[in-house]
């Protein structure tokens, strides 16, 4: 199980990396943590002409706050986020989810951007990014653009990234999920991709009686199912409200079926986990204890 031959390029600057992407397009593969690309190369399921190793582009490893947004560069490793007090404070939902991503060893090298680029429908990072209405920063020689996660993830292993673009950062809104959040997933073993994962957040406005919430379900269909909303007054019966939200999200879904799980099981888990996390986020943020 050895990779097919390719050209290895180790750019010294982002500009060089982008030039290579511009030249080779979909014949190029960007190598960061290597935890998705490495196995694909070894199995010869990925056969790029050029592998662009961005690991020495230190500028991409920054965790920085940009107003209401936390910008996590393309080389920020999962373990970096778990170890960051700032991340814990600003994006607690992401931090909660990362505990479910892979293992101690893989989190030490695996990047968040790599997970976003790979776009597995069960992966936790894309789910959280979408649930929080974050965005992906895509950079090419042509432009820098910020694509909302809602538009970025287009299906199993499919994204809005153009062939000459590189993910240079993930942008995480910091004004949501800090009052109430919850993450749960069901997988066979610890560290496996989820069969179904559920993420939720809720906030009470600090300027009026209003509130907002977000709910995301991963692993059910080819992309995360998301509902976000809010209102001028917090709902009186949170459980009833959660039921309505779930019903809205799971209406008309056609869950995936595979060796691991049937569509019926996924549908059930979507319902069960979704209700659980949403209710917990709402209760924490909106301060009501429901039976």
């Amino acid at each position: 199980m050895k990779p097919a031959a390719f050209e290895y390029c180790r750019p010294d600057s982002l500009a060089e990396a982008l030039a290579l992407l511009s030249e080779y397009g979909d014949e190029a593969a960007v190598l960061a943590g290597g935890l998705s690309l490495g196995p694909l190369l070894n199995m010869r399921m990925a056969r790029p002409e050029v592998v662009i190793d961005i690991n020495r582009l230190a500028d991409l490893a920054r965790i920085e706050r940009d107003g209401e947004v936390l910008r996590l560069g393309a080389l920020v490793r999962q373990a970096d986020v778990l170890a960051s007090a700032e991340c814990q404070d600003l994006v607690p939902l992401l931090v909660a989810a990362l505990g479910h991503v892979g293992h101690y060893q893989t989190r030490d090298r695996g990047t968040l951007a790599g997970s976003a680029a790979h776009a597995d429908p069960s992966a936790e990072v894309p789910l959280c990014l979408k649930t929080l209405a974050g965005a992906v920063e895509l950079t090419s020689e042509r432009q820098v653009r910020r694509v909302p996660a809602d538009d970025f993830f287009q299906g199993t292993l499919t994204t809005a990234r153009a062939d000459d673009e590189m993910i240079t950062a993930l942008l995480w809104p910091t004004d949501r999920g800090r009052q109430g959040f919850a993450f749960e997933e069901v997988s066979e073993r610890r560290g496996d991709f989820a069969i179904v994962a559920a993420a939720a957040w809720a906030e009470r406005h600090d300027y009026d009686e209003g509130y907002r919430y977000g709910l995301g379900l991963g692993g059910v269909e080819e992309w995360s199912l998301v509902s976000r909303g809010g209102g001028r007054r917090a709902p009186e019966d949170l459980a009833e409200f959660a039921d309505e939200v779930i019903a809205g999200v799971t209406e008309d879904i056609e869950p995936m079926r595979d060796q691991r799980a049937s569509a019926a099981y996924r549908r059930h888990l979507a319902d069960h986990l979704g209700r659980k996390v949403l209710l917990r986020a709402l209760e924490t943020a909106l301060g009501e204890v429901q039976s």
Binding site: M1, K2, Y8, L31, D108, R109
Partner: peptide, 25 residues
Amino acid sequence: EHGVCGACTVVLDGRLARSCATLAV
């Protein structure tokens, strides 16, 4: 050789690495 079993784990510049999912270069 697909980064799952962990037998090939080494420390690379202070971080753990699956050496089968890492290129020598």
